[in-house]
Structures are given as C-alpha cells and as structure tokens.
C-alpha cells in the first residue's frame, strides 16, 4: 500500500515536471524541491522563500570581489592537535582533501568595485565552520593586518561555533579574535559583518556580533544556543521563524538584511560612505 502511495506521488511529480531525470534539491527552509541547476544559477537562493543557501568560500569570493583581485593571506596554516583528540588530525586531513581548504576560513585582501578591503570568508563544509586555532589565528591576523594598513574588514561568517576537538583552546579563540576586533575598532577601523547560514555559538558570541555594521542574508540562522538545546531546556517546540535573520532584526541585533544579488553593491557603497578607497598593498 505504501508503495502504491509513492507511485502516485512520483507519477504526479513527473507529470508536472519537464524533465524527471534532472536532479533536484530541497530547500532547507520551505522544503520546496528546486531543480539543482536552477538553484546553482540563482547562487543558491530559494526561488520560493528567498532562503539564502550556503556557499563555499571560493563561490563567495567569486561573486563578491572584482575579478582576480582577491589575494589570500596566511593560506598554508593547519591546526595542531592541542588536546590530542582521537582521530582529529585524520579527520582534518580528510576534509582538506575533500574541500581543498586548509581550515574553515579563507582570509585575504581584495577589491569590491575598486575599493580595497581585508576579508575573511568562512566555509561551513569544513567541520561546520567551527572555530579552532587556525580560524582564530587567521581572523586575528586579518584584523591586525587591517589595523596596520588602515584598511576595513568584511567577514562573512558561517559557523556552528567552537571547535570541540580543540577543547578550551577553541574557546580562547573567542577572546583572541574579539581582542583583535577591538584594537582595530579603537584605531578607527571599519568592520562589516555579513552573517550567512548558519552563524551560531562561539562565533555569534565573539567577532560576528562586533561589526560596526551587521548585515544578514535573508532567512539564515543566527543564534547563540542551538535550537535543539533550547527545545530540550524549555520542553516545547520553537516557532519556525525563531533565530532566523528576520527575527533577529526584529529583536534589534541586525542592521540590515541584504539579498545576495545586491550584496556586492551594498558593501561597496558602505565602504565608500566610510571613506574607504582603492589601495595597493
């Protein structure tokens, strides 16, 4: 009987689609099926609910920065194993091989519509974008570099939080990065945070919340504690929109929500409004 039901569903779905062989993805927010190629064409924005999906650091760089203007800094840094966590080095090697990344953030200097900025782009494919020694060090160096060279910083955050496998050392990266953000800020530096899906835990409780301007992409998840943790504490289901960008803006923690297709020009304008310009570094 169950099989019959699936056949009916399949038949209906096939009747309405042009080409049943083409792969589809399901939107994590509204659950609508989207043709994979259409989703990629839209740079992973759901055409039904406007959820802004996850991009790799490389994809983010290519849609944000002027062509060939982004130069990565501190690229070849890999994490040690500070608490000798079982299989952590192996797990990282595997992820480096799969993603081509050295850890969960890429930092560098690039130009947006001709304006020079330091940038950090997190990539959630690498251990959920969690922050360990390498993420902490690279972000800290990015802010120190920006302060020395009087440059702005734009960070695209995407993180599940602290890197459990580095224990307390990972927690301390929150202090280290926030300290560097503060020194850059005290020196008059301009810092824009762009929150992307998901920005949670220790990253929310450190540099992600410290931007002079905090932008979020639509429908993305932003929070300190995880949904499941809260649900198990309060023993009730949370509303669907809880911790989404729109909710967080309503609560006063987001300056603006910006569509991906407009992000580049909004960032360029904001940089311009803060007196940033082209610089050769």
């Amino acid at each position: 009987m169950l099989e019959d039901f699936f056949n009916v569903v399949k038949k209906r779905f096939n009747d309405t689609s042009d080409d049943d062989a083409r792969p589809t993805v399901k939107c994590p927010r509204c659950q609508s099926p989207i043709l994979q190629e259409r989703y990629e064409e839209l740079h992973r924005v759901c055409p039904f609910c406007n959820y802004h999906g996850r991009l790799s650091a490389q994809e983010r760089i290519s849609i944000t920065f002027d062509k060939d203007s982004f130069h990565e800094i501190n690229a070849d840094m890999i994490s040690a194993d500070p608490i000798e966590f079982p299989e952590y080095p192996e797990k990282q090697q595997e992820l480096r091989d799969i993603t081509g990344l050295s850890d969960a953030v890429v930092t560098g200097v690039g130009k947006i519509k001709g304006i020079t900025t330091v940038a950090g782009i997190m990539d959630s494919r690498y251990m959920m974008g969690s922050m360990g020694s390498v993420v902490g060090e690279k972000i800290t160096r990015a802010f120190e570099y920006a302060a020395e060279n009087k440059l702005p910083v734009i960070l695209f955050t995407a993180s599940g939080g602290a890197r459990m496998q580095e224990g307390i050392v990972s927690l301390m990266q929150m202090a280290k990065t926030s300290g560097a953000v503060k020194l850059h800020s005290d020196a008059g530096g301009f810092y824009i945070t762009v929150l992307t899906d998901p920005t949670t835990g220790g990253v929310t409780a450190s540099f992600a919340s410290l931007g002079d301007i905090i932008i979020a992409e639509p429908k993305i998840l932003i929070g300190f504690a995880g949904r499941r943790v809260i649900e198990s504490t309060i023993r009730q289901r949370l509303p669907e929109d809880f911790q989404l960008a729109e909710f967080m803006q309503e609560k006063g923690f987001i300056d603006m929500i910006v569509d991906r297709k407009k992000m580049r020009s909004v960032l360029a304008h904001l940089l311009e409004l803060h007196g940033c310009s082209a610089k050769e570094v």
């Binding site: 501190n74 070849d76 840094m77 890999i78 994490s79 040690a80 194993d81 500070p82 360990g132 020694s133 390498v134 902490g136 060090e137 800290t140 580095e166 050392v169 301390m172 990266q173 202090a175 280290k176 300290g179 560097a180």
Partner: peptide, 12 residues
C-alpha cells in the same frame, strides 16, 4: 596572554 593561545603549523 590570549593572543598566543592556539596551536598550528605554517608551511606544513
């Protein structure tokens, strides 16, 4: 004190 916490290698 906080700046130096973290363990990594460069040019691995």
């Amino acid at each position: 004190k906080f700046r130096k916490i973290g363990e990594f290698t460069e040019h691995p």
